[in-house]
Design a protein around this nucleic acid. Structure first.
Length: 437
RNA sequence: UCCUCAGUAGCUCAAUUGGCAGAGCAUCCGGCUGUUAACCGGAGGGUUGUUGGUUCGAGUCCAACCUGAGGAGCCA
């Protein structure tokens, strides 16, 4: 090994602090332009990208010719002096004194030109390297961190719920079966909620945050077969408490992203104005009022059903804020929703619809806490009573009013980022026709 | 499961009324000392998703199938 002077390894994101100094940057070649005796190498390192200028005179023939053949996404380490320059994208560049090829890259599949979505998804493991996908993933990270901070600061305890479950949490949706040794079939969870209720009776206020699986053959921009959901559950809580919590959570998440991720929103060319309008209190309408709004807007909608996608979009367009819809018909919601004491055909349920056509981001409500009523519901829904005996136990041993909700992370991220499809809001989307990479 | 649309070079797309299979990017070769998805010149690169049919002649028209996309249904 040759003796080398000590090197300062810098990150591109904080390059401004190194102007006038020689630093080492370790990253990947994003693009290369050449002009005979000068190369312009755009280098990215995960914190940002910068233009590196290499002149033949400064580095000599060998390194200069090596750079001539560097393929896109070659891993390189460069050393050079940092300089502010108005001509450079980003305002700074590095005069390359030395370049080391760390890992070669030839025929990189994603070129600077446009690609189709299917091709990009086939190369998702490489697509993530683009500036746009990095921005989405950073915002996703921020959303998740804001969610955890929100619940942790309010005294909620993170209690993990199982991913392998013995039966449907509800009998309604399709589950992914998994062979469980040679004795049984397990199912991937579609919600941690039933376990959350048990956990809330132990710890008061809890939340779970994990992947959720739905084997529905949905082919829309709002559906994934594997997605992430945060689900809080509170003991001694009523529907109003659930709505207030959901509202506060959405505001906290939006506020955090606006505070910390403006550069990423700019990369995505996301108009921040609709996000800046988000503040409590959100408009609250009952299901009945929502039906009136839909009918007044000319949609043919009959009382009793759940809202379809066009209905959700129309409702969201009626307001310029997230809108809270409560007290859906009991028949349209899950068996564990508590009936409205004043109107038994309505349930103490709530959805939060995001603006701009992003649809339902939160769904939840107050749970049925009466043993006899809940057991009757289990029977009426043809659910195996044995499998729900532990759940019914919660109503036998100190039952209290309680409730909570689930918030789909990908839908929230898609809304914040202004994405056309939730598949970009998760690193490796799982959909009806996609299981790889 | 239903509706609509698409499938041509590694990628993104053209191809007039049915008449020689094309361009840009990427790759390779050459040129250029301030490029901004650099530019200029040259080269290689094709079972037009599959099968069958109509026709002198099919990327183009017809049928079936395959694959995918968008939407509906479904979906706390």
């Amino acid at each position: 090994m040759m003796e080398r002077p000590p090197q300062t390894v810098a990150h591109i994101g904080g390059i401004a602090a190194h102007v006038g100094r020689e630093v080492t940057l370790r990253g990947w070649l994003q693009n290369r332009r050449s002009s005979g005796r000068i190369h312009f190498l755009t280098v990215r390192d995960g914190t940002g990208s910068i233009q590196a200028v290499m002149s033949k005179a400064a580095v000599g023939d060998d390194i200069f010719r090596q750079a001539d053949h560097l393929g896109q996404e070659s891993a390189i380490s460069i050393r050079g002096q940092v300089r502010a320059d108005a001509r450079a994208p980003g305002g700074y560049e590095v005069d390359v004194a030395h370049l080391e090829l760390v890992g070669a890259s030839q025929d990189y599949p994603i070129t600077p030109k446009e690609h189709g979505v299917e091709y990009l998804l086939d190369h998702r493991h490489l697509w993530l390297r683009t500036e746009r996908q990095q921005a989405i993933l950073r915002i996703r990270h921020e959303v998740i961190d804001a969610v955890r901070t929100f619940f942790n600061s309010r005294g909620f305890v993170l209690v993990d719920t199982p991913i392998l479950t013995p039966a449907a949490c509800e009998g309604t949706t399709t589950l992914f079966p998994v062979p469980y040794f040679d004795t049984a079939t397990a199912f991937l969870t579609q919600s941690g909620q039933l376990y959350n209720e048990a956990n809330a009776m132990a710890l008061g206020r809890v939340y779970c945050f994990g992947p959720t699986f739905r084997a529905e053959k949905s082919k829309t921009r709002r559906h994934l077969t594997e997605f992430w959901m945060v689900e809080p559950e509170m003991a001694y809580a009523a529907l109003d408490d659930v709505m207030a919590l959901a509202e506060d959570l959405v505001v906290a998440v939006i506020t955090r992203v606006l505070d910390t991720r403006r550069p990423e929103l700019a990369v995505l060319q996301r108009d921040a104005a609709p996000l800046e309008r988000v503040r409590a209190p959100f408009p609250r309408v009952s299901y009945d009022e929502a039906v009136d709004i839909l009918q007044a807007r000319g949609l043919e909608f009959q009382w009793g059903g759940d809202f379809g996608s066009p209905d959700e979009t129309a409702l969201a367009e009626h307001f310029d804020q997230p809108v809270i819809v409560h007290r859906f018909p009991a028949a349209a919601k899950a068996f564990y929703m508590k009936a409205d004491p004043e109107r038994p055909e309505a349930s103490l349920s709530v959805d939060v619809l995001a603006p701009e056509g992003y649809g339902e981001i939160v769904g939840g409500g107050q749970r049925e806490d009466d043993y006899d009523v809940l057991r009757e519901r289990v029977r009426a829904h043809d659910l195996p009573e044995e499998a729900f005996s532990w759940y019914l136990d919660l109503r036998r041993y100190g039952s209290v009013p309680h409730g909570g909700f689930g918030m789909g992370i990908e839908r929230v991220v898609a809304w914040i980022c202004g994405l056309q499809h939730v598949r970009e809001a998760v690193p490796y989307p799982r959909m009806l026709h996609r299981l790889t990479p």
